[in-house]
Amino acid sequence: MQATETGLLRAARALDRVAIVSGHLVAWMIVPLVLALSYEVVARYWFNAPTQWAYDMTFMLYGSFFMLGAAYTLQRKGHVRTDSFYANWPPRRQAAVDLAGYLLMFFPFVGVLLFVGWGYFWKAFVTHETFVSSSWQPITWPFKLALPVAGALLALQGISECLKCLHTLRSGAWPGQDAPPEIAV
C-alpha cells in the first residue's frame, strides 16, 4: 500500500517538475514584453519613429504569456476557487470533489484547448497564415501554437493533481508540500 502511495506521489512530483520548469521559463517573457513596448514608447514619443512590430509583438507575447503560464499557476494552486464550503471540508471530501472536477470539468475544457486548438495551429502552419493587424504581417502559427501547448501542459498538470487527489483519498491527508492552497504573495 505504502509503495503505491509513494509511487503515485513520485509520478505527481515528476509531472509537477514539468509545470514548474515551464513556469520559470515563461515568467521571463515579461522581460521582452517590457523592453519591446518601452522601446516603442521611446521611439514613438521622443523620436516620432514608431516601430512596425511593437503592436503585434505586444499581443503575441502577452497572449502566449498568460496561456503558457496556466499550468504553472495550477501547480501553485493559483486558480481561484469559491472556498466558502470547500475550505471547511475534510481532505478526503476535498480530494473527491477535486477529482470529480478534474474529470468532469477540467479535462473536457483543457481537451478543447489541446485538440481543437491544435487544429487552428496546424491550419495556420500549413497555410503560412499571417496577422494583418499591422504592416509587419508576422506569421500566426507561433502565437496559435501557444493554445495546444498550454492545453498539453495543463493536461499533464491535471494528471498530477488527480494523482495527488488519489493519494489523499487513500491516506486521508494532502501530500506535505501541497498543504497550503494559497498563492504565496
Binding site: H79, A87, D98, L104, M105, F106, F109, V110, L113
Partner: peptide, 30 residues
C-alpha cells in the same frame, strides 16, 4: 462546489453550448 472557477465556468459554457449549438461551441471557445 469549490473547484477552480475558471474551469467550472469554462466547462459549463461548453456543456450548455454543446446542447444548443453542437460541436461548434468548441470552435467558439478557441
Amino acid at each position: 462546489i469549490g473547484f477552480p472557477i475558471s474551469f467550472t465556468l469554462g466547462a459549463l459554457s461548453l456543456a450548455t453550448g454543446y446542447i444548443a449549438l453542437g460541436p461548434v461551441v468548441f470552435d467558439l471557445a478557441i
